[in-house]
Nucleic acid binder design. Structure first.
Lengths: 245, 245
DNA sequence: TAGTGGTCTAGACCACGGG
DNA sequence: CCGTGGTCTAGACCACTAC
């Protein structure tokens, strides 16, 4: 048998390396959500490559919604605090086509310990400190969403019911401004379930009514899971929208 | 008041025009699903632009899954007949994580007339000829999906139950090979519903069991809607997966 | 007017696939 | 070996924003 060439990492283009370095800066907080990053020329100089190579790196990060390009102004770090990003991860919409404005009422925010299920998804150890939150969201006076949230206690120290109730705006914007945690991506698993007594009360439907169960895991930079959300939607007057490409 | 410059189409980059021309060729059937399109150099010559401009056009079409690039081989027209594309639009997956293999049993394939609902979504006139199909799909012997499909009669002339039952493979592959119709994109609206008697029979669940209702409209080139699909999933042992970016 | 991102070009060289 | 797509560069010019 002849010798075989076994490249471990079989070729990494320059722009991938630039991408990785920009990502590292984002993760390290060198440029915060909403801020401008250096211009393409500056980055090209910093990394000693051509502008075209930086462009390609930025293009891909922008395609993943990590950066936002604005012609004439610069390239910005994506943020959930912008108006048009407020509902970036919300796929629920009214059947009527109206504009959707949900009002949030937080019910609880407690320190607990991670169950196996939660620990597994958040990559913690069972028993690690975890924050549990739940809330109801209403649209036009009707309760539409009941949501339970689990957060790693270490990252979200001090989060309590008062903080949540004083906050007006999306929860992801709060995570960003108070806990330096920007959500980049999420995965959802959806099922149809029947309302039990508790859900029936929260959503003002009859026991046994069909509800949409949406389990979400949300990730920050570096594919780090930092939030679990288990929502139940009353879909009698609204639906979950999805686009397949 | 001074004169104002009012550009109707406010600037269209060259690569957008190239994109439009490539799209026109795809729509016209100049290159069929699965075939190679001309090389970047050839296209650059044909359109009298540089290779880089053609590249950018192709890059965007590939990002939309209309074309597939294969280094060393060429650029191909996307097709639902490739193995890895068989389930491109299927978001249902077993909770267990097993590989999913659905077996399809067609129940009906009939000529009917478009209701207002169907006509509206397919951009037909009410009463236009429409083909109605329904089927049950099973996984490991258990019925999991009940699906109703509506197609415009004009485009799918001659489609009948025998054709469907003789066909082994995804329906979208059949549309492609027999009716020159490639599906490019789809939109789904999802709700939770209760099983009525008919659904309970098809899916072997009790009446009132919660089911996932998935209404899909699928589009060919040029944003033309050509299929409506209303599926009901039994999500007791499987779930609908979605990724948010 | 200066600075940013956006487009377009031409040319060199690399990686991959298949004869 | 050649042809394909993939990477990288350098430079010109355009479009948008803000001062």
């Amino acid at each position: 048998m002849s010798e075989v060439n076994l490249p471990i990492a079989s070729f990494s283009p320059l722009y991938e390396q630039i991408k990785a370095m920009i990502l590292a800066s984002l993760q390290a907080g060198e440029w915060l959500p909403g801020e401008v990053i250096p211009s393409e020329m500056e980055l090209a100089a910093r990394y000693a490559v051509s502008q075209g190579t930086v462009r390609k790196a930025i293009d891909e990060l922008a395609a993943q919604n990590l950066l936002v390009r604005r012609q004439g102004k610069g390239t910005f770090v994506a943020t959930h605090q912008e108006d048009d990003w407020q509902y970036r991860f919300l796929r629920l919409a009214p059947d009527s086509g109206e504009k959707f404005h949900l009002i949030s009422q937080f019910l609880a925010c407690e320190q607990t310990k991670a169950t196996d299920y939660v620990a597994n998804l958040l990559k913690l150890k069972a028993g690690d400190p975890v924050i549990y939150i739940d809330r109801v969201q209403t649209f036009a006076g009707q309760p539409v969403v009941f949501e339970e949230i689990w957060l790693p206690g270490s990252r979200f120290k001090g989060l309590d019911l008062n903080t949540l109730n004083d906050w007006h705006g999306p929860v992801y914007a709060l995570y960003e401004s108070q806990y330096a945690t920007h959500m980049v991506r999420a995965e959802e698993k959806i099922k149809a379930v029947s309302a039990d007594e508790g859900l029936a009360n929260h959503l003002q439907v009859i026991i046994g009514a069909p509800l949409l169960s949406v389990e979400r895991v949300a990730f920050t930079y570096g594919n780090k899971p930092v939030e679990i959300r288990h929502a139940r939607y009353d879909t009698s007057e609204q639906h979950y929208e999805n686009r397949l490409n």
